[in-house]
Amino acid sequence: MSLVMIILLLFLNIPVYIFLFRVFFVDNDDYNESIRHTFTPNIISLFRGEYWKDRMNTARLQFFILICGGIVVLEYLVLHKIIDIFR
């Protein structure tokens, strides 16, 4: 039951993910740059002169993923409590 609820919440939250995507990233190129910086080692970014840009893009992507996951977890906990009340 809980796995079905989590999968359902993941799909129902797609509009929320899109809204958060627009808040965190200007466009798809900005998102792709954040992905590139996340997988580029910091020492390489340091030699390219992009160290702080790398750190900011990595943090931005991590916060985006953390908030999207946190929303699903909070909704699951609330729904689980509501289901327990009605049992």
Rank of each mutant, 00 (worst) to 15 (best):
F63C: 11
T38C: 13
D30I: 00
E33Y: 15
D84L: 13
E75V: 00
I67T: 01
R55T: 12
G70D: 03
H37N: 13
N32V: 09
L79H: 03
W52D: 12
D54P: 02
G70I: 05
G70Q: 00
L79V: 00
V72G: 02
I35L: 15
Y31W: 12
I44M: 10
I43C: 07
V26L: 14
S45W: 09
V73F: 10
I44E: 09
I67N: 04
V72P: 04
F25C: 03
D30C: 06
R55I: 10
F47S: 07
W52N: 10
L74I: 11
I65Y: 02
T38V: 04
K81E: 13
Y76T: 07
S34P: 09
H80N: 12
P41S: 08
D30A: 05
A59I: 07
L46Y: 12
I65P: 00
F25N: 04
I71C: 07
N28H: 13
D84P: 00
N42V: 12
F24R: 06
V26W: 14
H80Y: 14
N32G: 01
V72Q: 01
C68Q: 03
F63S: 07
F63E: 05
F64V: 02
R55F: 12
I83H: 10
S45N: 14
I82N: 02
Y76L: 09
L46F: 15
R60E: 02
M56P: 00
I67E: 02
I82P: 04
V78K: 01
I65G: 02
K53Q: 13
Y76W: 14
I35V: 15
I43G: 06
L61Q: 04
C68T: 05
Q62R: 09
N57V: 02
F24W: 13
N28D: 11
F25L: 00
I83C: 06
L74V: 07
Y76P: 03
D84S: 11
F63W: 12
N57G: 05
I43R: 06
H80K: 14
V78A: 11
N32C: 11
L79Q: 00
F64H: 05
M56T: 10
G49S: 02
G70E: 06
G49L: 03
V23M: 05
L46Q: 15
Y31K: 11
F24T: 06
D27Q: 07
L77Q: 00
L79R: 04
G49A: 03
E33L: 15
T38Q: 12
N32R: 14
G70Y: 01
E75Q: 12
H80G: 05
S34A: 13
I71H: 00
K53E: 12
I67Q: 06
Y31Q: 01
V73H: 02
Y51H: 10
N28M: 15
G69W: 04
S34E: 03
F24S: 08
T58Y: 04
R48F: 08
C68H: 00
V78R: 08
G49P: 11
W52Q: 10
V78L: 10
F24K: 07
L46A: 14
G70V: 03
D54A: 11
H80M: 09
H37F: 15
H80W: 08
D27A: 11
D84A: 14
R55Y: 14
E33Q: 14
L66Y: 08
F24L: 05
N42I: 10
L74Y: 08
S34Y: 04
F64L: 01
